[in-house]
Nucleic acid binder design. Sequence first.
DNA 1: TCTTGATCCTCTAGTCGCTAGAGGATGTAG
DNA 2: CTACATCCTCTAGCGACTAGAGGATCAAGA
Lengths: 152, 152
Amino acid sequence: MPSLSIGAAAAASGVKVPTIRYYESIDLLPSPPRTGSNRRSYDAADVRRLAFIRHARELGFEVEAIRALLKLQDEPDQSCAAADAIARDRLAEVEHRIASLEALRAELIRMVEGCSHGHVGRCRVIEILADHGECRHHQGAEPVALAARTGS
Amino acid sequence: MPSLSIGAAAAASGVKVPTIRYYESIDLLPSPPRTGSNRRSYDAADVRRLAFIRHARELGFEVEAIRALLKLQDEPDQSCAAADAIARDRLAEVEHRIASLEALRAELIRMVEGCSHGHVGRCRVIEILADHGECRHHQGAEPVALAARTGS
DNA sequence: TCTTGATCCTCTAGTCGCTAGAGGATGTAG
DNA sequence: CTACATCCTCTAGCGACTAGAGGATCAAGA
């Protein structure tokens, strides 16, 4: 069984080195054996697990949901129902989020189309943001998600 | 000019009390005058500014973008182009995210439909997440946003 | 063999946009 | 006058990382 350094595991899985250590620290990834010089050594199963985690994160699963999925994977004789339930929850949330984003998209389009490239005083972008009273697309808390960090 | 307590300003704008103080601390909202007993007192303009911020946040604008928009608003003789550019960036990001979420949605549907309610060994939920290599909907970092906090 | 530079280690602190709580002062209603 | 709500400041916490300090170790070239 080929043993990989953390850097190689990172390259193979697409998960960054510090993130792998972070996952270990929160017990999402088991602590791997160490070499004589105290370096982590991973195998193919670890890389698969990391890829699984990465994929699930990209799909928007929270770490706790991933933990649940991994537990299912580790005990493969259980019923599929739990995994199914997790995925269904996710699906509902994703659909809800798509709907929110589409309302938001419509409003942004309204803004940029309304912008006459004149002065700010007449700018729809500013006006629409200022007149929230006119906007009804949702009132109840639940902030639209942001993130998607641009910095490398 | 009617002066409002922070609680009244919060109720009027829809921004929570601690969040108003937070906005002041990051200089998004100017420090208001204080009463004799050291309480903040806001006026209608502050409430409008807060509503503006809230609306922009709901639309997913980051605080730095909102800061830029507010600066434009404070200097209303400038060109609209900057505000337009900010909104366009936001629109592009929203559209990109919708696309990701729709790919994701398709995959989740595939998952829950593929789940035969048998055992995990046969369950697509786990399989699909494990086989990231087969999935091509995007490879370049950029985690799909999460958040949408469920806790009140 | 030496040296250079990449990679590794641990640890702490910072990011974003808030939210929660401690501990205390003040305002308002009955 | 007594509750109790609201306000004040301050610090710490959330999730999911990311960045940097300060040091050890490895691999490759001269």
